[in-house]
């Protein structure tokens, strides 16, 4: 069907590639800030004696994993403008993604800390180390290694999650694809390209995650 190639040119391809940079930027923002949140959540969830912290963190994780990301983006985006905050679109879209990252990565952090056998804690304590010292020198190095494969796996989810910024009209890769397809009517071609770009970003991450996981199992 020759109509597919109406008006579709390399300029559109460039536009899509630019948009994919936006996607990557959103991910970088969400992941770096989300990691901070995740560390806080993870530590709160493993707090030995303060039950309130554990409860609050658990509730946070339940809420952000038990509701659709689409809803989170809607609510955060429109909620922010209601409060009167006029933030640049990039930031407004990043915020729900950061909170989302915080919840999922928080679980990964928690699993990492809990994967450390109690014997490691006891060995550290028996040598006279304080809780923070054991955490910093014994638990964290091991936990970080455990957390890396699932974190890379989560990045894939995050990249896919940025596609939902489409719904508030933010121009990332999916919205760009929609715009181009509306302009050129080369819908199938455009979305195939969009899919390939996402695949090109995510597939290496997935492979890396699997390989890291296998390497971790060998050393255990």
């Amino acid at each position: 069907m020759p109509e597919i190639f109406i008006a579709f040119s390399y300029k559109d391809v460039l536009y899509l590639l630019q948009a994919s940079l936006v996607t990557v930027a959103l991910c970088a923002m969400a992941f770096s800030c989300g990691l901070v949140v995740a560390l806080a959540i993870g530590l709160m969830r493993t707090a030995r004696r303060v039950r309130v912290l554990r409860f609050v963190a658990a509730a946070y994780v339940e809420v952000f994993r038990g509701t659709p990301l689409l809803m989170q983006i809607f609510i955060a985006y429109f909620g922010l403008s209601i409060i009167g905050l006029q933030l640049p679109k990039f930031v407004a879209v990043s915020i729900p993604l950061i909170l989302f990252t915080g919840a999922f990565m928080g679980e990964i952090v928690r699993a990492g800390i809990e994967a450390i056998p109690r014997g490691q804690w006891e060995a550290g304590w028996s040598l006279g180390m304080s809780y923070m010292q054991v955490m910093r020198w014994v638990v964290v190095p091991t936990a970080v290694r455990i957390m890396i494969p699932p974190s890379v796996g989560f990045l894939v989810q995050l990249v896919k999650g940025t596609s939902l910024a489409y719904v508030v009209g933010y121009v990332e890769l999916t919205r760009a694809g929609y715009i181009v397809s509306q302009a050129t009517y080369a819908t199938m071609l455009v979305f195939t390209l969009v899919g390939l770009i996402y695949f090109g970003i995510n597939y290496p991450l997935s492979l890396a995650s699997q390989r890291l996981e296998a390497r971790l199992k060998r050393h255990a």
Partner: peptide, 19 residues
């Protein structure tokens, strides 16, 4: 499996719908 797991659902949706 790899194609689906590495692409966003919304893109898959558009693909099927417009396809």
């Amino acid at each position: 499996v790899e194609a689906i797991r590495n692409t966003p659902f919304i893109v898959q949706l558009f693909y099927v719908y417009f396809g």
